[in-house]
Write a protein that binds this DNA or RNA. Structure first.
Length: 577
RNA sequence: CGGGGCGUAGCGCAGUCUGGCAGCGCAUCUGCUUUGGGAGCAGAGGGUCGUGAGUUCAAAUCCCACCGCCCCGACCA
């Protein structure tokens, strides 16, 4: 490609409303243009990157035996009503009516459509297993789209769905997809980590997320450098402390702590470390219609943080919320800030302690009286033994749940997710087959997603500097750029640049000849901004010695090479990736 | 949904308090000079000042309503 025949525009200043680096750089580099909140046009330069990601994903899915198809973005409401998600899916599901007042949705995902396709055409175990996938535009009406293409409302996704005659075969395909995803993100040139993820109501070890490691990620990941264990913090188990609860040494005492409602303030006021305090979090579950709301007090060591996913697994609290001030006063006779487990009415309030809080002795907590805390509190002696559960987020240094080493934490951007759906959708939509005995069975399903457009943003979050984007060669808009000095003034440089361009194209390189009539500084700055991994400068001064100049995007200095040596160097670098 | 902020040329912003010719930098166009790190000089084009309705001799500026966007808040006992 020649710049003069291509179309791209760059900006010196990023639009003021961009809030993450990838969004700023994508706007500055002219990869995307905002059309509405969370909705973007992919400009030709950005589209080249998107297509490269897409093609790697496609190649590897095909290699793994999955078969591509393309489903509609617009889906009839009937399928969603049949699966039950018409009611369950919230306002993220964009619904609309056509001219005949029939209900439709713009697909946020395609379980319903694919299951409908398969149930119509697959009748026999002989047609299984079957793995179908597509790379298609999705729409989710996020409350607050942000971070450019990383949390857009409209985005490009690869979604695959596999169908099986047995759970064992689903597990085999799941493992194959785990390996395929590992291969995909490796080829994309990204630093990533596969982590165990929450499986929600389905349970089992049936879900992994693939995260690109980046400081700006929205997810916390716990991993063990020694054992290879990795899990989303939502899921990572905090093991019960191995040290037993110490015996009570001091008597229960009520202490005035006027105005000290936050744990940190209480600890400072009493001159004790934060981990001697127990904090109480009041939660409510609405329960079914006609039932009274259920109330519970969750107790954690004050320096620990409540994990809401874990809390939602408490029996009866699947969809809990934090209690209102009124509810707290009604159950505990005191406002928030001074509440605790001592003296609560066991008939009305469940007391559930995190494993860490359950082994504490002589601790401090709220006295259920405004302006007072209790010191020297001990389970069993001063209040009933609590229910015990794993309620907190793990922290760096916690023992790994597999018992081998200690956990570390990092942040990640979720770019892939694989999931053993089992029969959830197949049952709802009655997707079955006849087995060897001619008996009808419900299929086992898996689903496998990759956020293709999000990968582009994640790659930039991971690879950039003050000059702009640094792409891995596999997904850069061009593998290399030829930058001639004085293309429009100097015939020798022009002829040499044209010849080199023709030669690189003929051997299959995706190269940009920057033949714009601009000053060198502008050309350099633009090539660096858009993240081209290799730059070749053709100048009269180098040509005098028969040399060209090669510089990697991360290099500080260029090297002067004769043409053949330069071709060899480029081949070595680009073919390796 | 609650709180805060913003909306002026393609991009970044000033001007609003205190009403009085709609500005600056970058980008764009023309000419000359320049040519290895986002050039200089001279000139030019480009605006429903988010929308609507008011107040006023006069509104980007004041009042009211609406729309859009951004940020913060759903880890709090």
């Amino acid at each position: 490609m020649r710049s003069s025949r291509f179309f791209f525009t760059t900006l010196k200043e990023a639009p003021a409303d961009a809030d993450v680096i990838s969004q700023k750089l994508m706007l500055r580099a002219g990869f995307i243009k905002r059309a509405a909140a969370g909705v973007y046009t992919w400009m030709p330069l950005g589209l080249r990157v998107l297509r490269k990601v897409e093609n790697i994903v496609r190649e590897e899915m095909n290699r793994a035996g999955a078969i591509e198809l393309l489903m509609p973005a617009v889906q009839p409401a009937e399928l969603w009503q049949e699966s039950g998600r018409w009611e369950k899916y919230g306002p993220e599901l964009l619904r609309f009516k056509d001219r005949h007042q029939r209900d439709f949705v713009i697909g946020p995902t395609h379980e319903e459509v694919i299951t409908d396709v398969v149930r119509r055409d697959v009748k026999s175990y002989r047609q299984l297993p079957l793995h179908l996938y597509q790379i298609q535009t999705k729409f989710r009406d996020e409350i607050r789209p942000r971070f450019g293409v990383m949390r857009g409302r409209e985005f490009l996704m690869k979604d695959g769905y596999s169908f099986h005659a047995s759970r064992a075969d689903l597990e085999r395909e799941y493992q194959r997809m785990y390996e395929t995803y590992t291969r995909i993100f490796t080829r994309l040139g990204l630093k990533f980590r596969a982590v165990a993820a929450d499986t929600g109501s389905i349970g089992g070890a049936g879900s992994h997320e693939f995260h690109v490691i980046a400081e700006t990620g929205e997810d916390d990941i716990a991993y063990c450098p020694d054992s290879g264990y990795a899990a989303n913090v939502e899921l990572a188990e905090a093991l019960a402390p191995t040290t037993p609860r110490p015996p009570a040494r001091v008597p229960l005492q009520k202490t005035a702590t006027p105005g000290k409602t936050a744990c940190a303030e209480v600890a400072e006021f009493l001159q004790i470390p934060l981990d001697r305090l127990v904090k109480a979090i009041a939660v409510v579950s609405e329960g079914r219609e006609g039932e009274a709301p259920r109330f519970a007090l969750l107790l954690l060591r004050a320096d620990h943080v409540l994990n809401e996913v874990k809390a939602s697994k408490i029996e009866g609290f699947a969809s809990f919320r934090f209690a209102s001030e009124t509810e707290i006063v009604a159950h505990l006779g005191c406002e928030a800030g001074y509440i605790g487990p001592v003296g609560v009415d066991a008939g009305k309030t469940r007391v559930i302690a995190d494993r860490g809080a359950a082994v504490m002795g002589d601790f401090v907590c709220g006295a259920n009286a405004a302006g007072f805390h209790l010191t020297g509190v001990n389970w069993g002696r001063d209040c009933p033994e609590p229910e015990i559960a794993d309620l907190r987020n793990v922290v760096a240094g916690d023992p790994s749940p597999d018992g081998k080493g200690k956990l570390a934490l990092c942040r990640g951007i979720e770019v892939g997710h694989i999931f053993q759906l089992r029969a959830t959708y197949a049952r709802a939509l009655d997707c079955g087959y006849l087995d060897e005995q001619g008996k009808r069975q419900i299929m086992e399903m898996g689903c496998y997603g990759i956020g293709v457009s999000r990968v582009v943003g994640a790659a930039i979050e991971q690879g950039h500097d003050e000059k702009g984007i640094i792409f891995p060669a596999a997904i850069a808009p061009f593998q290399a750029a030829i930058v001639p000095m004085g293309y429009h003034k100097n015939e020798a440089a022009r002829l040499a640049a044209d010849a080199l361009y023709a030669e690189l194209v003929s051997i299959g390189f995706d190269v940009l000849l920057d033949d714009r009539d601009e000053r060198p500084g502008s050309l350099f700055a633009d090539m660096e901004l858009i993240g081209v991994p290799h730059r070749i400068v053709v100048s009269e001064r180098g040509l005098k010695d028969g040399r060209l100049e090669l510089k990697g995007r991360r290099d500080s200095e260029a090297v002067l090479l004769e043409k053949e040596a330069l071709l060899d160097a480029l081949k070595a670098k680009l073919c390796a990736s």
